[in-house]
Every structure is written in C-alpha cells, then in structure tokens.
Design a protein around this nucleic acid. Sequence first.
DNA 1: CTAAAAAGTTATCCTAAACTAACAATGTGC
DNA 2: GCACATTGTTAGTTTAGGATAACTTTTTAG
Lengths: 128, 128
Amino acid sequence: MVEKISKSHEDYLEAIVELGGTTKSAVRSVDVAASMGVSKASVNKAIAVLKEGGLLDQPYYGDITLTKAGFDYGTAVLERHHLLYTFLTKALGIDEKTADEEACIMEHAISDKSYKKWRDYIKKLDLD
Amino acid sequence: MVEKISKSHEDYLEAIVELGGTTKSAVRSVDVAASMGVSKASVNKAIAVLKEGGLLDQPYYGDITLTKAGFDYGTAVLERHHLLYTFLTKALGIDEKTADEEACIMEHAISDKSYKKWRDYIKKLDLD
DNA sequence: CTAAAAAGTTATCCTAAACTAACAATGTGC
DNA sequence: GCACATTGTTAGTTTAGGATAACTTTTTAG
C-alpha cells in the first residue's frame, strides 16, 4: 500500500522521473529546481521529506536517486499527466499549453482505480 | 474579465451557491461551515476576503448574499463539478463517491475555453 | 593545484488556510 | 422579557510550502 503524499511532493517526484531519475540514474537538485521553477532551497526541503518517507535517497551534498517506491510513484503521476494531456488535446481539442497546465492539476486527482478506467476509455477512442 | 481566485475561495463560492445562495437569497455562515466541514472561524476569514473582492456581501453579524460576480463565479465552478461528475460516472463508470471527490479537485483546473470543449464533447456522448 | 564558479545546505522569514478558544451579538422558548 | 442556545467575530497558533541570503562543499578552468 503506497502512502499518499501531498500534491507538491507528487510534483517533485514527477519532475525527477521526467528528468530521467531512476533507482540507478541520479538527478541533480539544481535541475529539479530549474525544471519546476522553484528555488534550490525549496527542493532541498522537499527532498528531505521524500527521503524521510523512503521515496528517494540523497547523500550529503550528493545527487538524488529514487527508491523503487519513489520511482513507481513518480512514474504513476507522470502517466496520469500524459493520459490527461492526450485526452485534452486529442479528444477535446484543447491547445497544448493549456492542456499541459490543466493536466498538471488534474493528475493529482486520479486514484489508481480511476486511472485504469481512464486508460481503458482512452484506448477505445483510438486517438490517431 | 473575472479575477482568478484561489481553489479554496472557489470552494467557498461553490458551497454557497450549492446551499441556494444568490443575489437575493441569503445563506448563513454556519451552514457553509457545516457543508464544507470547516470551522466557522475559517468561513469568517474567507468571507472577508471574498467581500473585499466584491464577490459577496455580508453585514456585521448578518447573512451572506452573493454579488452578480460571485454568483456567476460560484455557478461556473459548480457547473464544472457537475460536468466532470457526469463524465466520470457515466462515461468512465467510476463510483459516485470517488467521482465526487475527484471532480472536486479537477473542477479547479478547467478554464472557460476548456469548459466549453468538455461540454460539447459530453453532449455528443449523449449519456443516459 | 588552486581560484572561481556552481551546487547543496541551513537559517530565517512570509503567506495561505486551516484550527481552537474566548467573546459579542442575535434569536428562541418559556 | 430574560435566560440560554445559537451564530458570528476576533485573537492567537499551527502547518505546508514557498522565498532570500549567507554559508559550505564540490567541480571545473587554467
């Protein structure tokens, strides 16, 4: 059973996965900060919490690697984002910038059970 | 042009409309608190900000009435909620409780332009 | 190999949004 | 019409999540 974390922390995990972070491939704090548009101090604080929760590792002054749990969590958020983005752009015809912004908020709303239904529904639409 | 307000304040306006608040029909603070599951102190503080923003009126120790702008804003949020709820339950087959919870988050993500596209899309589905 | 740049850390502060508790105003039942 | 319950207000506290600034550590250029 995965512990539920805040939207903000979900965003951090998502960004790390998007930057190529895995259990093997490390990511730098400064890149997370740049990609999210937040200060490195904010990243540092979020990292401490996620580390505490067993979602990632970071040695003192070192780079960030995800744990299995952290990678799975971040990947799940990213998948929801992609799914919603596809639906908003392809099914509804919303422009890319708007779709991305709106997917960013909606991605935090979708439970595992709902995600599967969304996925099946979109698969049936057979978009492009 | 409508001023964008916080998700939290959108929730207050939505709740007031849901309780029957209009420019004519007043709503009591205590009912807003009960329906949202927050303290009356929290309602009081939110009301002060919404009043400041011209979205509602409340005399000292009096009931809440919405302004035209406040009613329109609250109604718009509520419409998005209903639309999403319908989509989640009817199109995706998500259970009512989950759909309501997830619509509560997603409703804050949808811009005016996107709302129209969602509405047209769902109309075409011809649900129930 | 060392000076400077870059990256990570820490301390402190700010804001939004909630809470509790105490107080003030209003409304109701007898 | 007064006592008491209900409702609204205010003050002070907490927590999450951001920021800046100063400092430490690491990396890199020459």
